[in-house]
């Protein structure tokens, strides 16, 4: 279980990126976080990854408080961030340097097969397409078998076809390893197709505006009416959260 207990984050410039965020994520659950810019969704992910510290409150994974990067938590960024001087294979094995060689090779091979890039093991990152590079990044994050995988808008730079194919890859990996997935996105379709639960966040200060359970069986048809209806629900909640925010922003002026 991933617990977020009234996590607050105020940046040195005074921006209150997160205000008392409370959240419980079940083991193996897929949670999507959507929201306008500045709603604190990336801040939340950085806190959960241990890359930043909350100003108040804490984040726990199975009872252990996360204060710095943890081997049980993997993260995938918007860009693949592969190391250009390492081959695909070496990139995937980057986090496994402390494992014995045989085990490392096995883990790398296994996860590369899962993302369908076993023939690319000896390629340089520059030889990959954008979608392939992001698949290597996913493989690198999953190779050490983390319990929680955080994804920060990982498919937003890709075209619609590649994005859809990466959703399939991600789901097949999730079926194989059953990690908890926390996916920050601004793509409502992505959230509806992948998640068990969609959190809608709103800015100033960053907090959860709505929680929508996605009770749809997998595999889901992204062009089906159920997903369409779910997309509309999420969009509606997003819309409401943004309108509420601008309403709040207006109220001090109204008071004058």
């Amino acid at each position: 279980m991933l617990y977020v207990e009234s996590a607050d984050k105020t940046y040195p410039n005074g921006t209150r990126a997160l205000a008392g965020l409370n959240l419980e994520v079940e083991e193996g659950e897929i949670v999507a976080v959507v929201g306008g810019s500045g709603c604190g969704k990336s801040t939340f992910l950085r806190l959960a990854a241990g890359l930043d510290q909350p100003t108040r409150g804490r984040i726990r994974l199975d009872g252990e408080t996360i204060t710095r990067p943890n081997p049980l938590v993997g993260i995938i960024f918007q860009e693949p961030r592969l190391l250009p001087w390492l081959t695909v294979e070496q990139n995937v094995g980057f986090g496994l340097a402390d494992r014995p060689r045989a085990e490392r090779e096995r883990l790398v091979r296994e996860v590369l097969e899962r993302v369908g890039l076993q023939n690319y093991a000896h390629c340089w990152p520059r030889e990959l397409s954008g979608g392939q590079a992001q698949r290597v990044a996913i493989a690198r994050a999953l190779a050490p078998h983390p319990k929680v995988l955080l994804l920060d808008e990982p498919f937003s730079a890709l075209d619609a076809f590649t994005r859809a194919s990466l959703h399939e890859h991600l789901l097949s990996l999730w079926h194989a390893f059953r990690p908890t997935l926390v996916l920050v996105t601004h793509d409502v379709e992505e959230a509806s197709v992948l998640a068990d639960r969609v959190l809608v966040m709103q800015p100033n200060p960053g907090r959860i505006a709505a929680t929508i359970d996605v009770d749809l069986a997998r595999p889901r048809d992204r062009y089906g009416t159920e997903i369409e209806a779910m997309k509309r629900r999420v969009l509606w909640a997003l819309d409401k959260s943004l309108r509420r925010e601008s309403g709040e922003a207006l109220s001090p002026a109204a008071a004058i």
């Binding site: 990854a49 890359l51 710095r68 990067p69 081997p71 993997g74 993260i75 960024f77 860009e79 961030r81 190391l83 980057f94 986090g95």
Partner: peptide, 11 residues
């Protein structure tokens, strides 16, 4: 900075 962050993620 983003590459260095990859190093931090892997401790």
């Amino acid at each position: 900075r983003k590459t260095v962050e990859v190093g931090r993620v892997f401790r």
